[in-house]
Design a protein around this nucleic acid. Structure first.
Lengths: 108, 108
DNA sequence: CTTTTCCATAGATACTTTCCTAATTAGGAA
DNA sequence: TTCCTAATTAGGAAAGTATCTATGGAAAAG
């Protein structure tokens, strides 16, 4: 959770996540949208990946990044639970909703 | 929201929030629980307050801090909404739950 | 094999954060 | 006023972060 919060404490990284909400895309496609050198984007993506907030998938020459919405939500809900009981309820609801949905995601 | 995430990207600050979940308390009471000088605690609390995550209330010589659970939750839910629709639903539920509860909090 | 494309890593520099001790402000009591 | 306690502010050292340019390496194309 530590890593997740540190990763989210950066406007460029949150903007990258929002951009990724539109669907999986390559580093180059992401970099086009930001006024920042590609190595910087790459670094931000590696931070997000290290925090488990995005998935990585090699596809030939390209690397496709996609958002890890579940991990994102679970981290924040887990943090919120001590402060507001509703978070616990929603967390259970999310868990139930995922049952029966095998969805084996291909990370790395 | 920027301030909220930056404030939360610190283990000591998240621990302080968890401690505050037990109820309002003074800076000194908080500082007793942490192996850190009081000025450091004070600084962390000012960061949390600047981010709107805690309330401050002067009480004579003491300053009582308490958690601002609503702002905390609203920030995180607002961030999550683009990624998972359930967050929007819960956000509405929380809002509805607050209706009819005037609760004018005394900040500053 | 050579070139091009896509991305990551390395190194440099500037900036920010975190923590301490010491000093300061402010309130309450003698 | 004077003293004591509570909390913040100030100053500085050390560590971390962000960004750039330059370089490296793997996959596809020529």
């Amino acid at each position: 959770m530590e890593k997740a919060f540190r990763a989210l404490a950066s406007t460029p990284r949150r903007r990258i996540l929002n951009h990724l909400a539109g669907g999986p895309m390559t580093v180059g496609e992401i970099a086009e949208q930001f006024d920042m050198a590609m190595p910087s984007i790459s670094k931000h993506l590696s931070v997000l990946h290290d925090a488990g907030l995005v998935h990585q998938q090699k596809r030939g020459q390209h690397i496709i990044y996609s958002i890890a919405a579940d991990n994102l939500a679970n981290n924040l809900y887990a943090f919120l639970t001590p402060f507001c009981p509703e978070a616990r309820k929603l967390s259970a609801e999310r868990k139930k909703a995922r049952e029966g949905v095998p969805e084996r995601s291909d990370d790395e």
